[in-house]
């Protein structure tokens, strides 16, 4: 009785460790099952459609508005220092380095990650995964691996679309509405945004986010309690954990890449 709280704490800690272990075993199984994706590219294409194509609309509209807001706010601050020509640099650098990968990852976690969790959770709840196993089809290879690679491949492409549309949105507001010189807008951007330092690092970031967000979504779905409540919890956890992981990892990656 005296040790009851301590035991509860210990059990909770062990539970977390156990889930972490199961998550890593699932990731390993998915990676080992990668061959299936190459053998059946159809499965990957279907998932690229679900995760990528269906997210293009929300990604490009958000990118447009984020870029436009950056243009307005950046102009307000830069005008005080008489440096409105740097608006292009500000918009492009913040989009390519941070906002593109991060906001895209958050949106994909919300839009596609939750759908993945719910889909796989329901497959588990309705015993479709068990049925596949009965037919000697490995559900990890057949169901999870294509979804994993779909998410990992779609994320950098979506982030690139987000950043490109955002730059155009910033251009529209800065040059079209606020009267920044178009030549200075582009030339400052091109002078200061570096291909390796900024764009390649942004792509690496979004690849990492793609792995993490899809992994969390697949694990939560695969590991859920197979009831309606369990599926709904798994969906919630996917979004919450996915967003937290993206923001936390973003800090670490930024510190590693740019913290000099």
């Amino acid at each position: 009785m005296l040790f009851d709280p301590l035991a509860r704490l210990g059990r909770a800690g062990l539970g977390v460790l156990e889930r972490l272990g199961r998550a890593h075993r699932l990731l390993l199984a998915i990676l080992l099952g990668s061959a299936e994706v190459l053998l059946r590219p159809r499965l990957l294409i279907a998932q690229l459609y679900n995760i990528g194509v269906l997210s293009v609309l929300i990604i490009s509209v958000s990118g447009l508005f984020v870029g436009m807001v950056l243009g307005l706010q950046g102009h307000y601050v830069l005008a005080r220092f008489g440096a409105v020509e740097s608006l292009g640099l500000m918009v492009a650098a913040s989009l390519v380095r941070e906002l593109g990968p991060v906001v895209t990852a958050l949106l994909v976690a919300g839009r596609a990650g939750s759908a993945l969790s719910a889909e796989i959770g329901l497959m588990k709840a309705t015993e479709q995964l068990a049925g596949l196993e009965l037919m000697a089809v490995d559900p990890v290879r057949r169901i999870l691996a294509p979804r994993f690679y779909g998410g990992v491949l779609a994320m950098p492409l979506l982030a690139a679309i987000f950043s490109a549309v955002g730059v155009l949105g910033g251009f529209f507001v800065g040059v079209g509405l606020l009267g920044v010189d178009a030549g200075a807008f582009w030339s400052q951007m091109q002078n200061q945004v570096d291909f390796r330092e900024d764009i390649v690092n942004g792509v690496i970031k979004s690849l990492v986010f793609g792995v993490v967000v899809t992994w969390i979504a697949l694990f939560q779905g695969h590991d859920c309690v197979p009831t309606s409540e369990g599926v709904s919890r798994a969906t919630t956890r996917t979004v919450v954990l996915g967003a937290l992981a993206v923001l936390g990892l973003d800090f670490i990656l930024t510190a590693l890449m740019f913290g000099d």
Binding site: I45, A46, L48, Y49, G52, V53, V56, A92, V96, A154, P156, L157, L158, A160, I161, S163, A164, V165, V167, W186, M189, Q190, N191, Q192, V193, D194, F195, D198, I199, V203
Partner: peptide, 27 residues
Amino acid sequence: NLEILVGAFMVAGFVALFFLSMQVSNL
């Protein structure tokens, strides 16, 4: 149709990357 849409998506993604590389950065 699905394949065409996925193809279009990938082209759009790579065009965006290309735009960022050539137009936005000093590559």
